[in-house]
Amino acid sequence: MLRTSLLISSSIVRRLAVANTATNVQTSSTLKSEKRPQIKVALCLQRYIHLSPEMTQLEKDYTNLITQLETEHSYLSDHELRHKSELELAKQRQSSATSTAAAVNIVETAVDLEDRLAKEFESFQFMPRETEDDKTNNLHSQNRKLDQNLLLVVQRKNSESGKDEWIFPEKIYDGEPSLRAAVDQIISTCGNLHVQISGNAPLAYYKNDSDSSSKKIFFYKGEYLAGVIKQFSTLKATPYKDHAWITHEDAPKYLSPSYYKAVKDMLFVF
């Protein structure tokens, strides 16, 4: 008995020790290969929709049809029954004023109730679907176009060609244990952000064929949850000049054609 228990505990301990060493290896290991790959990582930050988009004409028509069919196939509700009985009472009262129906005094009829509730609904004010930033067309704010997905693009200072390009925020891979770790560092360079990155695997890659010295870029996608983005125009130490939140439709206008072609498949919206 004693011996078996000892055996069990020892095996558990051994297994635990093995597991611990395994995790240690995982956490402490950094890339030790002699040749560091010359690549870049980029983060495509998306702000997902806050408001549901307006229905199209077909969708409106179909919802109307569905509700109509449902009412046709349904039984009368309590409210409709009440309305019906009240109409009958009114009829009786007209025909014979002295009957028992005249004695019943209705304070609020069903129609009155409907009117009152409709009035209450009218007085309720919905918040506008458009924000201040929509009116001023403030591209720096993520608080615009709430019914569309927005992408964060930054403008890179390019001294060589003299032309400033719009790109997704990127970083040269610098021996981090994984590409994901490198992506996590991009977030802090953009500002104090709360971001959820979707997965450890890159979703797209881009290589500028015309420029042989350019590095391969691997793209990750992230969801913007909260936070403020740095004002790049006031900072000197950043490689970027400006940033903007753009819709998916505007993306080809900002990004260069070959760049957009590489990331197009990743940026799908239904």
Partner: peptide, 24 residues
């Protein structure tokens, strides 16, 4: 697109490829 990207990453570095395949 993701598969292509992973293939390209494998060409660059096997270790990074293995890391990228981990479950998040």
């Amino acid at each position: 697109s993701q598969e292509d990207a992973l293939e390209q990453l494998k060409l660059e570095s096997e270790e990074l490829y293995d890391k990228a395949l981990q479950v998040d």
